[in-house]
Structure formats: structure tokens, C-alpha cells
Design a protein around this nucleic acid. Structure first.
Length: 227
DNA sequence: TATTGATCATGT
DNA sequence: ACATGATCAATA
């Protein structure tokens, strides 16, 4: 078997995700008949894909949520021994053309983050991949304050994009939402609008949620210490 | 050690 | 080329 069937309801999805908590990636892989790579260096998406299969997410669907009928996006979250996120979370590509003018309410970012099933996965250095454990899942919808904070970042960043001032954007901008390169390698180019309205070629960028944002989400839900 | 900028695999 | 899934590795 390569994966489970998609849960019919939100309650079933949550229940299935809850059942995964406490199990190791090795156990999941064995149950699904998938080999465990020695490390993630050449297979960075392995953990996410394993959880997709275990939960019955639609595979290879583009520009669609992982569970289209439920409107739910699945995100695994690598966490340290204390349960705090180790990495930022990729959200989506930054629109550099006409889509760049979309207001927050209709933006790609907001759609992606409308309803997310976060699944923490142990990722402490030194713990072998097969022995890493899955944590307790969290189904999340942005609270009004979270939505407003993300909107502020989005508007600040996208204004620069719209003005053709992409060069002024680096990962330091944005309180919670940041923009960073997102490409197979540094020579990839995509079309964008320049400062004088002309078409230019530039490195594709992606929106990422800072680890501090996801840390706050988990802390609020699980009552972890906020250090 | 946290963060930024670069990169890996796969499918359409 | 761009979407999915992210982590790696150099730097601050």
C-alpha cells in the first residue's frame, strides 16, 4: 500500500492524525511499505510526503489544498526536543506578475493558511530518521489578531513587489511572514516587473512563515513555555 | 545558535 | 518552468 484513502470528514481526518501521534517515522514507513532514507540531504520532502500518504492526502495536486473536499492544508513541522519549530515553513510562491496586486483577502497566502493541519515531527539533530516521533496534531485557523499580523506583513512586502523594488526585499523584512528565494538553484529565473514597469528576469521567491510564528501557535495550544 | 540565502527530489 | 514537499549549510 502506498497511502490511505482520504478521510471523508474533518473529524475523521483529525482522528486519524491523532492516532499517528507517538508513532515513529520508521513505523509509518514500514506500514506504508516505504524505505527510510539514510538522511534527508537528498530527499528533503520525505517526511512531508510520508505524512501525506499516512493521512490520505491528495498526491501531486497543484494549487489545491491537500484535502480539497475539506479545504485543509497539511504541514509537517520539524520540532526540537522541547517541541519548538526548528525551521520556517514554506507557504507559497510570491506572485511577481498581475497576481501581485491581489488584496490580502483574496491572496494566495491567505487561502493557503485559511485552515492548516499542523503535524509536529521530532527533528532534533542526532535522532535517526526512523526513530523520530510524530507529535500531537493541531488543526488551525488564523485568529483575527494572527490574520491582521500576517496581513500587515503581506501588504508591506507586496507593495515593494508591485513597485518593482524586488531588490529591496530580503529575509529580514516581515515580522512573521518573510520572502526568501525558492528555486532548485541560484540560476533559475522567472519573469517579474521592474522599477520602470519593464519586464525583468529574477530568482523566484517564496513566502515563508518564521519559526517564531509557528512556535507561538503551538505554545498557545499546548501551553508550552514561551521562551 | 538563529537566521538567511541556497538547494534537493518529484510530478505536471 | 513551476508547483508540491521542505531542509541544508554558510553567515551573522
Amino acid at each position: 500500500m502506498t497511502g490511505a484513502r482520504a478521510p471523508a470528514t474533518l473529524a475523521r481526518l483529525e482522528a486519524r492524525a491523532a492516532d499517528l501521534a507517538g508513532h515513529t517515522l520508521g513505523e509509518l514507513a514500514a506500514a506504508l511499505g516505504r524505505p527510510v532514507p539514510a538522511d534527508l540531504r537528498r530527499d528533503k520532502g520525505w517526511v512531508g510526503q510520508l505524512l501525506e500518504a499516512a493521512l490520505g492526502a491528495a498526491a501531486g495536486a497543484q494549487a489545491e489544498p491537500d484535502f480539497p473536499h475539506l479545504g485543509v492544508e497539511l504541514k509537517t513541522l520539524p520540532v526540537d526536543a522541547r517541541g519548538r519549530p526548528r525551521e520556517s515553513t514554506y507557504v507559497c510562491t510570491v506572485p511577481l506578475g498581475a497576481e501581485a496586486h491581489l488584496p490580502w483577502a483574496r491572496s494566495w497566502v491567505r487561502r493557503k493558511l485559511a485552515c492548516v493541519l499542523w503535524v509536529p515531527v521530532e527533528a532534533a539533530a542526532g535522532v535517526p530518521l526512523a526513530r523520530r516521533r510524530v507529535g500531537t496534531p493541531l488543526l488551525w485557523r488564523p485568529a483575527p489578531a494572527e490574520d491582521a499580523a500576517l496581513r500587515a506583513d503581506y501588504e508591506e512586502l507586496m507593495e515593494l513587489v508591485c513597485r518593482g523594488e524586488l531588490e529591496r526585499i530580503d529575509a529580514r523584512r516581515g515580522r512573521w511572514l518573510q520572502i526568501r528565494p525558492k528555486a532548485a538553484h541560484g540560476r533559475v529565473l522567472t519573469a517579474a516587473v521592474g522599477a520602470d514597469g519593464e519586464t525583468i528576469s529574477t530568482l523566484p521567491r517564496g513566502f515563508y512563515l518564521r519559526a517564531g510564528f509557528t512556535a507561538a501557535l503551538l505554545a498557545r495550544h499546548y501551553q508550552l513555555p514561551v521562551t
